[in-house]
Simulated assay, not measured.
Amino acid sequence: MNGMNEFRAGWVIVALVMLFVVGCENTAGNNGRLEPVATNANEPPVKEQPIDPASMEQRIVVGFSQLGSESDWRKANSRSIQEAAKEAGIRLLFENAEQSQEKQFEAIRGFIDKKVDVIAVSPVIESGWEPILQEAKLAGIPIILADRAVKVSDPSLYVTTIGSDFFEEGRKAGKYLLDKLRNEPGPIGIVELQGTAGSSPTIERGSGFRDIIGERGDLVIQRAEPADFTVEQGRETMRAFLQEMGSDIRVLFAHNDDMAIGAIEAIEEYGLRPGEDIVIISVDGTRKAFELMVEGKINCIVECNPLLGPILMQAVREIMEGRTLPKRIVPQESVFTEGVAEKEAANRQY
């Protein structure tokens, strides 16, 4: 009898082991992954909830040092970058340097401390960047220059520059002037409202403009002064030009729309007609400038596109994927004159 009981007990143990093995097999899917098992034959399996990628802490992080908010162009540029980062799912650390190179250096060191993936910067001026870019390179963080360039002895300190060809913008302004005044005898007096002293647009736009108007010896630049890309400085500097030279001024070349807008106010205060007594050429292409061109107060606008955000964020993704970028990326831009002003004004996004 004891033998029979032992025999039956042995079979119970075997049966329990077999049930355990079958149960384990039923909970294993492909490649041994565990699958959810129903606790009741009438209930469906419990499924795992998908993970929201936006909640993961693996997003690309970009530190961006903007040089300021001195103009409508710059504000549109900042909005474009912020919106493009959001659209791309990239975390953007945005710092406004308020026209201070020292603040830009502080921002970049802060980005290095935070171990961001990429640093982008719109430099206030061209010079003085080598040491801080070296710091970023030693930290293994790639640098993208946005809008403006820098002068360094080692080009490997940055990956690429995204922005307009300022020298070509100056040449476009010069070509328009040669055509506009081709039948007008000289000498023809020109004044120039430059941007921030030492900045790449100021240097290159001025050089490109002179490269072209030099073909005509009777086109004379009487005065050229920095006006910091602002309406207020454009107005004050133009007032000073008019007090000194008055109606001898035939042409104004303004390095951006905001300075041109300020200068127009000064010209009208003086009693001259902007766009008629003084030919006005500007750079940027803001809606306000196009509205003034519709009124006949600006003769030519050389476009400088501020909407660099999508290009910048695409460049960031290319870098993170290990791809090689060209050293210079230039957006497509145009030249606009009075004939298309009304139509184009409605198309402006800034």
Rank of each mutant, 00 (worst) to 15 (best):
M1R: 04
G3L: 06
M4A: 08
N5M: 11
E6F: 03
E6Y: 08
R8H: 03
W11R: 09
V12A: 06
V14L: 10
L19G: 02
E25S: 05
R33I: 01
P36V: 01
N40D: 15
V46R: 11
V46G: 03
K47P: 13
E48T: 10
E48L: 11
A54F: 10
M56E: 14
V62Y: 12
V62Q: 07
G63D: 05
G63N: 08
S65R: 04
S69R: 08
K75D: 15
K75A: 13
R79M: 12
R79E: 14
A88M: 04
I90V: 15
I90Q: 03
R91F: 09
L92I: 09
N96L: 02
E98N: 15
Q99R: 14
Q101M: 13
E102I: 11
F105E: 06
A107Q: 10
G110W: 10
G110Q: 11
I112F: 10
D113W: 09
A120N: 04
V124T: 11
V124A: 01
V124F: 10
S127A: 14
G128P: 08
W129C: 02
E130R: 00
L133E: 09
A136T: 09
I141Y: 06
P142Y: 11
R148L: 04
A149V: 06
K151N: 13
K151G: 07
D154L: 01
T160A: 05
T161K: 13
S164T: 13
E168H: 11
G170V: 05
G170F: 06
K172W: 09
D179Q: 15
R182L: 01
E184I: 09
G189T: 05
V191Q: 07
V191E: 07
E192G: 00
L193H: 08
T196Q: 14
A197R: 12
G198M: 03
S199N: 08
S199R: 12
T202F: 03
I203D: 04
G206E: 09
S207A: 15
G208C: 07
I213D: 04
I213T: 03
D218E: 12
R223Q: 15
A224E: 12
E225I: 08
E225V: 12
A227D: 10
F229N: 13
G234E: 04
G234L: 07
M238E: 05
M238N: 05
A240R: 09
Q243M: 02
G246Y: 07
S247K: 13
I249H: 04
L252W: 00
F253Y: 14
A260T: 11
I261T: 10
I261A: 05
A263M: 07
A266F: 02
E269P: 06
Y270F: 14
G271M: 03
V283F: 07
G296Q: 09
K297F: 04
I301W: 12
E303F: 06
L308Y: 08
I311W: 01
Q314K: 14
P326M: 12
R328T: 13
P331C: 11
P331S: 11
E333D: 03
E338I: 14
N347M: 07
R348A: 12
Q349P: 00
